[in-house]
């Protein structure tokens, strides 16, 4: 019985003894700067899993949930450029490295893995930050996505409304995954 007590103590979750995390809040944005108009969109419906022990991370963004200033932008984004009915999700699966779970404050980290957008998967490596805050983990990154790399077609003539590369920011708050 005494032995069992000590085992329970050893297994009991303290601050950051948890290894697996699930996203609590998420915010994925993109920004396209072009001659005629700037286009910004926000998506707060993404989900992510993070294994703090191994650094494995995966996130999934429902493309349809990006909201825009103009509803026509949203329609064109889904219908003409992202072909959302065919490719409903953008995903990332990879590994985060270069962080320490005992450090405080935001610390630089790197993520490398496979980014899938518009049905095209590419190896990417992005720089970001990781912060341990109580039993929560904050992960943030900012990177450029070149539309051509993912076979997203830009309009050829008539309007120069869309940038060649868009700036994507990813912000996740993780909580321990109790399951």
């Amino acid at each position: 019985m005494k032995r069992l007590f000590w085992m329970l103590i050893a297994l009991a979750p303290g601050p950051l003894t948890a290894q697996k995390f699930i996203s609590e809040t998420s915010r994925v944005t993109f920004f396209s700067k072009a001659t005629i108009e700037d286009i910004a969109a926000v998506n707060e419906k993404s989900i992510a899993l993070f294994d703090a022990g191994s650094g494995d991370i995966a996130f999934s963004v429902p493309v349809k949930e990006f909201t825009f200033e103009k509803s026509l932008m949203r329609e064109h984004f889904n219908e003409k450029y992202m072909e959302t009915e065919k490719y409903p999700k953008a995903t990332f699966q990879g590994k985060v490295t270069g962080y320490s779970l005992s450090a405080t404050g935001p610390q630089p980290a790197r993520a490398a893995g496979k980014l899938t957008v518009h049905g095209v998967t590419r190896d990417v490596e992005v720089a970001g930050t990781l912060e341990v805050k109580g039993d929560r983990l904050l992960l943030a990154a900012k990177f450029m996505v070149t539309l051509e790399d993912y076979k997203v077609k830009r309009p050829q003539v008539l309007w120069k409304n869309i940038a060649e590369a868009v700036e994507v920011t990813v912000d996740f708050t993780f909580k321990p995954n109790e399951k």
């Binding site: 989900i47 899993l49 999934s60 995903t91």
Partner: peptide
């Protein structure tokens, strides 16, 4: 289960 290789597959189940 924490091996992480199938995090994305696991994620799809959460969605």
């Amino acid at each position: 289960t924490a091996s992480g290789q199938d995090l994305l597959a696991e994620l799809e189940k959460q969605a």
